[in-house]
């Protein structure tokens, strides 16, 4: 009885860790990515994130339930976890590939963590205006009560001046930047937020997102405000991925030099 149960369990784990499950989950993921991209072209990025890329279940034609991105990535995550513990071989020659798989675990796990915890807001200021209230992304598209979608920032931001420069003789923008004054409980300082140069404060990050002109010489600047305590997770995962790929490349190279006739390593 006991033996049978354990063999049932081990065959279940073997199935969880199996390559076939990997291939199936990846094929599902590929189909979902294609479908989501087409859906996005018609309905916009926000709808695609809500209905496909941020969903456990999607409903085809509003009726037929199919697995959403969260479900498929959960499946991949479990498959990967099982593979890492029960299928992959721990040998030096495989070290690179092992690292790659660990990095994928971290990418997917980190993605879940960020999806659950991170929040994104918008803050639009006219020149001279100051505010500490940001609006949640998606508030414009959704029909919810605006008041529930607001957040009070720990600092007050005043837009002193917005500046944009163009490449001469063309409509191609060269740079955008906003000079701001930041007022927190006990300090007051000035900073510049520009394209590719965000401002960081605690776990908030302020990015130059867009701007508008009222035609009378007045300008307004829009910042995207992101609060993300898992920001560093993809960086660790990326570092692991780089290391893993480099390691695997070296292992392959070493094998190829050792035995030039069959120049490959079976992963």
């Amino acid at each position: 009885m006991n033996k049978k149960r354990s063999s049932g369990l081990s065959s279940f784990i073997r199935r969880l860790a199996s390559l076939k499950l990997t291939v199936i989950a990846l094929a599902l993921l590929a189909a979902l990515v294609i479908a989501g991209t087409i859906y996005q072209a018609e309905n916009g990025i926000y709808a695609a994130q809500r209905d496909v890329f941020g969903a456990w279940i999607i409903r085809l034609f509003g009726v037929i339930p199919l697995p959403g991105l969260l479900l498929i990535s959960m499946l991949l995550f479990i498959n990967l976890l099982a593979a890492v513990f029960f299928r992959l071989q721990y040998r030096w020659r495989q070290a690179g590939l092992l690292l790659v798989h660990y990095s994928l675990l971290l990418f997917i796990g980190g993605g879940f963590f960020i999806a659950v915890t991170a929040q994104e807001y918008f803050l639009t200021l006219r020149e001279g205006e100051s505010s500490d209230v940001a609006i949640s992304v998606g508030a414009e598209e959704s029909q919810l009560d605006r008041n529930q979608e607001k957040v009070i920032l720990p600092i007050k931001i005043k837009l002193l001046d917005f500046e944009k420069t163009m490449h001469p003789g063309s409509g191609i923008p060269r740079s955008f930047s906003s000079r701001v004054e930041i007022v927190s409980a006990n300090t007051r300082r000035r900073a510049v937020i520009s394209m590719n140069r965000p401002l960081r404060y605690q776990d908030y990050t302020f990015y130059q997102s867009s701007y508008a002109e009222d035609g009378l010489g007045g300008e307004s600047s829009t910042f995207s405000v992101v609060r993300n305590s898992g920001r560093w997770l993809p960086y660790i995962a990326s570092a692991l991925l780089f290391l893993g790929l480099a390691g695997h490349f070296l292992a392959m190279l070493a094998a190829a030099l050792k035995n030039p006739r069959s120049a490959k390593v079976r992963p």
């Binding site: 990025i45 590719n196 990015y207 990326s238 790929l245």
Partner: peptide
């Protein structure tokens, strides 16, 4: 893979998200 991940880092540095399901 490497290029995509670098793109993610670039996007995070300049727009505040690593991945956004952009086409």
């Amino acid at each position: 893979c490497i290029g995509t991940v670098m793109g993610g880092i670039w996007a995070d540095l300049s727009w505040g998200r690593f991945w956004g399901w952009d086409p």
